[in-house]
């Protein structure tokens, strides 16, 4: 439902600290943008502002023809540093909850579990999983519930080389289906992407 992302003259401030101003970015269906910049430049804050979790100081964030509130409620996935998975619950319980919360069908969940090779992990408590395995659990949410705009904060960092490549294929499929991706990264994405650098 989100056909485009348009950020105009955005200024952000976090915790009283000025991050950046005059940021412009437009993203059409099928496009991916890699946001780069030094630590603390405001990459995560930019993603949070797009998700509506941080109010901009100035500027606008639009989602094409879609209503911003509706777009944020059902049109985007926000994959942050914190994955929201409870350590004491099993991977199956957490994945089932979050995918149903995202509106995914049980069939889509099964497909995502197979795609991300999670079936052997499902019975384990989340605390027993490695960082990369937890990340794959989060990626299964992206795969199970189709939403147009993916906001990814350092999506690659805990993944090994093989899963980085697999995630690259996942992103390519998402873009081919008309999706949009805005990712904050330090390492280059495994697919060709436009770059937006936020200066320090």
């Amino acid at each position: 439902m989100i056909q485009a992302l348009a950020i105009t003259e955005l200024a952000l401030r976090r915790g009283g600290r000025h991050l950046f101003d005059g940021l412009n970015l437009t993203l059409a269906a099928g496009e991916v943008c890699a946001v780069t910049g030094p630590n603390g430049a405001g990459k995560t804050s930019l993603l949070r502002a797009v998700a509506g979790l941080l109010a901009p100081e100035a500027g606008t964030i639009g989602f094409g023809a879609a209503d911003p509130a509706a777009a944020r409620a059902s049109g985007l996935h926000f994959l942050g540093h914190q994955d929201g998975l409870k350590p004491a619950r099993t991977a199956a319980e957490e994945l089932t909850f979050w995918t149903r919360w995202d509106g995914a069908s049980p069939g889509a969940l099964e497909t995502a579990v197979a795609d991300l090779e999670l079936s052997r992990l499902l019975a384990l408590e989340v605390r027993r999983l490695s960082a990369g395995q937890r990340r794959r659990l989060s990626l299964a949410r992206l795969a199970a519930a189709p939403r147009a705009l993916w906001l990814l904060d350092e999506p690659l960092s805990p993944l090994d080389a093989r899963w980085r490549a697999r995630f690259g294929e996942m992103m390519a499929r998402h873009l081919a289906g008309g999706g949009l991706i805005l990712a904050a990264v330090h390492d280059p994405l495994p697919i060709p992407a436009r770059e937006l650098e936020i200066p320090a």
């Binding site: 944020r72 409620a73 985007l76 914190q82 929201g84 998975l85 919360w101």
Partner: peptide, 16 residues
């Protein structure tokens, strides 16, 4: 607080 700290609250906010 637990949902706030582990990011689950954001997931709960971003929904219909």
């Amino acid at each position: 607080e637990r949902d706030y700290e582990d990011g689950a609250l954001e997931g709960l906010v971003l929904s219909e």
